[in-house]
Amino acid sequence: MSTTKNAAHREPMSDSETLRVDLEETRQHLADTVQELSRRLNVPHRVKETAGQAGQKMKEVPGAMKQLPGAAKQLPGAVKQLPVIGKRHPKATAAIGGAVALGVGAWMARRHS
C-alpha cells in the first residue's frame, strides 16, 4: 500500500503499521455496525419513539381542524375552476381522477372485508 505515516515527510508505512491502521478501521466499522443493530433491535425504545411522534401529530390536529372552515369556504370556487383546469391539463386530470377512483375502490374494499 502507498499509505503515508506523516503527510509532511511522506514516509511509507511499514506493513505492520498498515495492518494496525486497517485493524483499527475495521474495529471502528464493526463498532458502528453493532451500535446500529442494537438501535434497530431495541423494540421498546422504537415503540416509545413512534408513540411520541404519533402524540406530536395528534397535538397538531386541533390547529388543522381550525383551518377547515376557511378551506371549506374556498371549496366552491375551486370546484368551479375544475372544468377550466381539466381543459388546460387533460392528462393530469385523467391521472388524478384515476388515482381518486383507485383510492375510493381500495377504501371500499377495506370497509367490506
Rank of each mutant, 00 (worst) to 15 (best):
E36D: 13
R40G: 11
G55H: 07
V61C: 02
H29I: 01
K66Q: 14
L75D: 02
A31E: 04
Q35D: 08
M58E: 12
R20I: 03
N42G: 00
E49G: 02
I96N: 10
P76N: 03
A78W: 06
L23E: 10
A94N: 05
R88N: 14
G98H: 03
P90N: 03
V34T: 01
A54T: 11
P90L: 04
A92M: 10
M58A: 11
E36N: 01
G70Y: 02
N42A: 09
N42T: 11
N42V: 00
G70V: 13
V34P: 00
I85A: 15
K66A: 06
Q56C: 06
K73W: 06
R46L: 15
L68D: 06
R39Y: 12
L37M: 12
A51G: 07
G55N: 07
E49D: 15
P90C: 01
K59P: 00
G63H: 07
K57Y: 11
R39F: 04
R40W: 12
E24K: 15
N42S: 12
A64L: 14
G55I: 05
A95V: 13
G97I: 04
A78T: 09
G77T: 04
L41M: 13
Q56M: 13
A51D: 12
R40C: 10
G63P: 00
Q53P: 00
T26I: 01
G55M: 11
T50A: 15
E24I: 00
M65P: 00
A94R: 04
P76R: 00
D22T: 09
S38R: 14
Q35M: 03
L41Y: 15
P76A: 02
D22H: 03
A51I: 12
A72D: 15
G55T: 03
Q74T: 09
D32Q: 08
K91Q: 15
G55S: 11
P62I: 10
G97R: 08
R20L: 07
G63T: 05
L68Y: 15
E24H: 00
G63Q: 08
P44S: 05
A101D: 12
G52M: 01
R27F: 02
K73N: 11
L68I: 15
V34Y: 13
P83S: 05
D22N: 07
G70Q: 12
K80D: 07
A94Q: 12
Q74P: 06
I85T: 09
G97L: 11
L37G: 01
K87G: 05
K59V: 06
N42H: 12
E49V: 01
P62H: 06
R88P: 00
H45V: 15
R27Q: 09
